[in-house]
Design a protein around this nucleic acid. Sequence first.
DNA 1: TCAAAAGTGTTTGACTTACACCCATGA
DNA 2: TCATGGGTGTAAGTCAAACACTTTTGA
Lengths: 247, 247
Amino acid sequence: MVRRPQDERSPGYGNQPTPDLVPGPEVDLRVVLLTREQDRLLVALTGREPCEASAHAIGLPRGRPELRRDLDGTARGIARRATGLSEQYLEQLYSMSVDQSTRGSWKVVIGYMALLSSGPGGSPDVSGVWADVSKLPTVSRIDRSVIDYAVVRLRAKLGYTNIGRYLLPSTFTLRELQSVYETILGQPLDKRNFRRRMMATGILAQTDGQRRDGSHRPAALYQFQVEEDRTTYLTPTWTDSDDTRRT
Amino acid sequence: MVRRPQDERSPGYGNQPTPDLVPGPEVDLRVVLLTREQDRLLVALTGREPCEASAHAIGLPRGRPELRRDLDGTARGIARRATGLSEQYLEQLYSMSVDQSTRGSWKVVIGYMALLSSGPGGSPDVSGVWADVSKLPTVSRIDRSVIDYAVVRLRAKLGYTNIGRYLLPSTFTLRELQSVYETILGQPLDKRNFRRRMMATGILAQTDGQRRDGSHRPAALYQFQVEEDRTTYLTPTWTDSDDTRRT
DNA sequence: TCAAAAGTGTTTGACTTACACCCATGA
DNA sequence: TCATGGGTGTAAGTCAAACACTTTTGA
C-alpha cells in the first residue's frame, strides 16, 4: 500500500555506463515459409552465400531490417524474394537473443511464419528447396528453433482460428481441408466429426463446382465466405506510429 | 511440383545497397509490470527523465539491451530496477517497429509482461506509480498498445494456463484466486463452478492454515502443488546459443 | 460389377452452466 | 442473534468422440 512517488532507483534507461553510446545489437529477421504438398508440410530453405557467417549450407530465408520498411514489411520482402510470390498469411513469432560468443555480443533474431497456398500445380517455386518439416536437413540451431516454434504455433492456432485456409487455394474439397489439419496435427481425424465441425463455423460455402479426381464420386468444392476476423488470432494490432516528439 | 534448385533470385540478405554498412535500428525494451490489489489490476509506470525524447511525463519502464544480458535478462533487469523485486513471471509479448519519422528511421520496441504477486502488505513498491489498467493516465501510443496487448494475452492465458498464480502470494484463499480471474476477465464468476473447475485441475492443495478476515467463517488457505508445466504456455523454449562459426 | 473416395446420423460420456441454501465466526 | 462471507450439490444443456453404411463415379 505504501507508495513512494519517486525514489533513488533510476527510472528509464538506468545508470549503467552511458548506454546511449553503445551501438546496440543487430537485428536479423528469419521467415519460416510453409506450404503443403501431398500431405506433407514443407518449409522453404535457401542456400547460404559463401561469405555468410553460418556453418550450414542451407537455412531459413533471412534479412536485415530495411530502413524504408517496418518489420512486417521486411519479412514480407524476404518471403517475396525467396518465392517470387506474396504469402497469404504472415505472423510474427518471437524475438530471441542469440549469443555471438566470438564477438562478445549478441543479436536479436525475430522469427516470422508465412503461409503459402499450394496452387493447382503443386508447390510454388522457391529459390532453394522445400524441405519436409518432419525430415529437416541440418540447419542451424536457431533456424531449427524458429521452425519448431512455427509448427507449434500453427498447430495451436488450428484449434481456435481458420488459419488452415491459408494453405489452400481459394476453392478446395473438404477432404483437402481435412488433410491440412491432419498434416499439421500429425494425426488422422474422423471425417464425419471434422465435416460437422467445419460446417458449424458457418464460414464455408459450397460452390457449384466439383472435382473429379479418379474413378469415384466427385467431391464438392467449397470456399471460405468471408475474410477472417483477425481478433480471434490474438495478434496485436496497432498503428505503426510515432511516440516521440523531440528530434 | 516444378522445383528449380537454385535460380537468379538472390537468397539471404538480397542485393540491396550493401546492407552490411547501415547501422540497423535501435532496440528498446518495455516491460508491463502487473500486480493486483483489491480487485484492480495495476501497471507500473515510471517517470521519464527530462532529457528523454518522450512527450509524456510517465510511461512503461524501459531500457536498451545490455551487452552482457540477453533479452529476457534485460527485461528482468528493467523490472527489478523499477520495483526492487524480482517478478514471478516474465513473458515476451511482441516486437513492433516504431516509426521515428523525424529521424527518417525506426526502432524495434520489444514488449514484455511481468507479473508480481501482491504481498500481504499490498502492492509492492515501485519507483513511480501503480496505475489501474482500466483507468490509465495518458501515456504514449506505443506504451498504450503494449499495455493493451499484455492484458489481452493475460486474459487469454487465464483460459488454458494457471498464469493467475503469479499474481498471488504462495498461500491464498479460493476467493482470492477467484478475484484474480474476475479482475482480469472483467466479469463475475460463479463461486461453485469456479471452485469445482480449480479443484479439477488437481494442482491445488489445501494447507492447514486458515485466514480470519472479519466476523465470519475463516477461509481455508491453499497453495499450488507443483511448478507449472511450461509447455502449456506455448512459449518457445531454446538454448540461447551460437549458430555462427566465423568471426 | 468392382474399386475407390464422397457423403451422411446417432449414441454416449464429459464438461459447462445455472442456481439456493446451510455453516462458522466475531461483533 | 445477526451480519458476513465460506462452503457445498444437482439438474439441464452443450459439446466432443466413437462408430458403419450408402452413394456416385470411371474403369
